[in-house]
Amino acid sequence: MFRDAALMAGKDLRIEWRSRVTTQQILPFAVLVILLFGMALDPDRGILARASSGLFWIAVLFCSLLAIQRAFTIEAADGGRDALRLSGLDPAGVFLGKAAAIAVQLIALEIVLAMGVVIIYGARITGFPLLLATCLAATAGLAAAGTLYGVLAAGLRVRETLLPILLLPVLAPVLIAATRAFEAALGGVAVEGWPWCGLLAMFALLYLIFGTLAFGTLLEES
């Protein structure tokens, strides 16, 4: 399973490296979202600083949708989905590999977005370990749930429009918990962030387990 996951993740990341979709399309989109929020709320930088956690994760959420769509678009072209089914790869490995590739891209995006939030919104990082742990846990959850719903939507004709409708409600707990944990890490609101981080880790673990078990069936049946 882990060998297949490494093979799949390596392939997806190589495709992204060659196509530059993440760096030339998704990343500029993410920066634009951060800039537009900044412009919209600019008259009062106090609001920007207070809302920076939520705005950061909303931007990450939008980017996740694009990254997940992209991860399954490359499989939809020229019979890739059937080839994947015929490959003999362990479906659990395919799930973990695709989720890992999405997670790597999201981490890279989050680093740039975090710099944007600090520079443009004037946010101050006060709890770096919590910030790092939150990013890792939330990203794992986004990637795992996204991969699961991505394969579900990929078999449908209206996948481009259906995926956000299916996925965003599912990811609402990630948005809430990650925002709360970030608020603590950015020192904006005096709440304890670690329980929220634990909730994110639990969400990620559940979807990783569920995805590992269900991905094969979804790949076959959807």
Partner: peptide, 12 residues
């Protein structure tokens, strides 16, 4: 199976 679709990745 060699079908009508090739299953190849254009970017690779």
């Amino acid at each position: 199976l060699l079908g009508h679709a090739t299953g190849l990745y254009d970017e690779l």
